[in-house]
Design a protein around this nucleic acid. Structure first.
Lengths: 218, 218
DNA sequence: AATAAAATTTAGATTGGCCTAAATTTATTA
DNA sequence: TAATAAATTTAGGCCAATCTAAATTTTATT
């Protein structure tokens, strides 16, 4: 289908446009693909020739319908493989990203659909990100950052917006894993940090930076 | 580690040298890698520079210890993935080769060792080929081609030396799958075809060509 | 042993993906 | 709004992997 590299660009554009068709910049793409802006420009021309993106010189890019479909399919594969790695092979949630990054490029619809069934058609990956179904539809849950919650509000941790291993390990250590019930008890005015209760039993104080990356279902 | 392409060359050399260190020809490699001899020559130089093969111009190549190790590791991955596809995802034995061909290049020792455990450390893949253990040791069973059996001899079908989908589907149709007990009842002198009984119940006549590609444990 | 055939290698080019340095366009700010 | 800064693109090159056509070496055959 598309080359390994093309797929990575499509995925990058998808992520930068927040899963939609927002305009994305050359430098933004360069940053998350670990390449230089000049290389990105080259590739954008190729992707535009293939009608996967709309590209206007100096103005940025958006995904076409075809491009979006392709990107969503890669996301689907990535997330299903992550579920497999955690649920079946016993990896931790902070260990699976790099491996899934490779597996997502395996090209077989039969494989991915069977894998989906084997896993019981999961709705979300180990980080709470929704898994597109085989027709490419994504069920977006309305989640709220802890940093946007008011004192007294409660909810269940249902996602994270930062996937680095250091961050995920920290959450684990703090007991802030998916499914945990939290209540915001206090906002610390001085530095914006936030006090929480976990499952009505433990207390935690987390920095604003951490709070921004934890998503809660109210 | 090594590039996708390098891995495919190593695998090709491995197969052509019968899993050993026999001398392999440029044309032979070109044939199974679907490239031209000139391309092979280029790559052989690179592999020789990296000490993965011993290469003497015009004389052919052999794998070095390092090269053999790398090749065996790819074989291990390929065969474990095949087991996964058949045992866990429900693919048929004639459907898994191409997918495993892609999966074998995924680069993670942790992944493959966990997969091995998840599958119960299988000794052979769905075609009966032995799976190297994590240290690279392969347990070779002494198997005999049906075409080399004498009338009256019995054994259990334990492998095939041809992996094409047409061949495997034929075996399925004939009931000549792994584990089937067969007895050679007669050799037909005219065309070399062979009469068998299956599990002491059914009769089958197979061509010499088919018989050559079925391996039996006596 | 000489010659023809087959196998292999070299020469020279192409394509995909990437780079640096220089040029151009857009955005910012004095 | 003119000048400066930032973002982006172009120009020109590099490397991996491939190819065709021509040259060379080995093998097979008179």
């Amino acid at each position: 289908m598309h080359s390994f590299t093309e797929e990575n660009y499509l995925k990058a554009i998808y992520h930068l446009s927040d899963g939609n068709k927002a305009i994305v910049s050359t430098n933004g793409i360069a940053e998350i693909t670990n390449t230089k802006a000049a290389s990105v420009t080259d590739m954008l021309k190729k992707l535009a020739d293939k009608k996967l993106i709309n590209y206007v010189k100096y103005q940025g890019v958006t995904l076409t319908d075809t491009g979006l479909k392709a990107a969503v399919n890669i996301i689907r594969k990535h997330r299903l493989w992550e579920v497999f790695l955690v649920e079946k092979l016993g990896f931790k949630w902070d260990e699976v990203h790099d491996i899934a990054e490779e597996l997502e490029h395996i090209n077989s619809t039969a494989l991915i659909n069977r894998l989906d069934d084997f896993l019981g058609n999961p709705a979300a990956d180990p980080h709470g990100d929704p898994i597109p179904d085989r027709s490419g539809i994504i069920e977006h849950k309305k989640l709220v950052k802890i940093s946007n919650m008011k004192p007294g509000q409660s909810g269940t941790i249902s996602g994270v917006s930062e996937h680095s291993s250091v961050f995920l390990k920290l959450l684990e250590k703090l007991g802030l894993t998916l499914g945990t019930l939290i209540t915001v008890t206090e906002l610390i005015e001085f530095d914006g940090s936030i006090m929480l209760s976990l499952n009505h039993t433990n207390e935690r104080t987390i920095s604003r930076e951490v709070a921004k990356n934890i998503l809660v279902m109210l």
